[in-house]
Each structure stands twice: as C-alpha cells, then as structure tokens.
Design a binder for these strands. Structure first.
Length: 105
DNA sequence: TCTATGACGATTC
DNA sequence: CGAATCGCCATAG
C-alpha cells in the first residue's frame, strides 16, 4: 500500500503537511508515515523545497532539531516563524517537543 | 548505467 | 551525547 504514482505520493505528503496546525510541529519521518509512506522522510524534505504554500517551518527533525545549519538564513527564518506561533526554540531545536502534531509517535 | 547527494531516520558503538 | 553506518527515494552529472 503506499505505492502509487509519485504524484499521488506528493499529494498525500502535501495534505499531511497542510494539516499541521499552527503552534505545532511534526518530523519529516512522521509526515511520511501519516502519508502512508513510512521511511520516505527524505522525500518529504524534497517536496517541502519544491512546493510553495506549505507550512514548511512546522516540519523539523525527529529529535525536534531544525534541519538547517544555524548559520543559514533558512534556519533563522524557520525559528522566527515558529516563535511567532508560540513554539519555543533554543539551541537549534524545539524545546517543548511534546507539542508534536500527532500523538502516538 | 553508476555514483554522489540531499530540508531524514534508526541503530550501534 | 556524538560519530559512524546503512536504509530510502528521486535527481543530477
């Protein structure tokens, strides 16, 4: 199951990311799982970079860390957006990692 | 056709 | 806790 055309898979990932509510975060791997495509975390990252209009800032690594290097511009932008939504970020990672999107992870 | 490379992840040491 | 490895998929060269 999970195997469909690459476009269908993209759609599923798109829908999952769009469903993440403000103030909450989700990991790449979890987005993949919720999209019925376990193991395709890397694929998720690529989609976030290609498609615009997605709340990409709400997607972080499995440990709650920002996926960008701290000296990059994107890193700062992501942190800024998260903080604006009330998500605590410090030292490159989301502090209250309990504010994850979907429970049961 | 093969290799290297990513906005990743889990495991192992 | 950090570094090394291997797995995953699509792309670029």
């Amino acid at each position: 199951m999970a195997s469909g055309s690459e476009d269908e898979r993209r759609q599923a990932i798109f829908a999952t990311v769009m469903a993440i509510p403000p103030g909450r975060v989700c990991s790449y791997g979890e987005v993949a799982r919720l999209s019925q495509q376990p193991g395709l975390a890397r694929f998720v990252g690529r989609i976030l970079g290609e498609v615009d209009g997605l709340p990409w800032h709400r997607v972080v690594r499995a440990g709650g860390q920002i996926a960008f290097a701290q000296e990059t511009k994107k890193y700062h932008e992501q942190v800024r957006r998260l903080v604006e939504e009330g998500v605590e970020v410090a030292n490159g990672r989301v502090q209250d990692w309990k504010q994850r999107f979907w429970q049961g992870y």
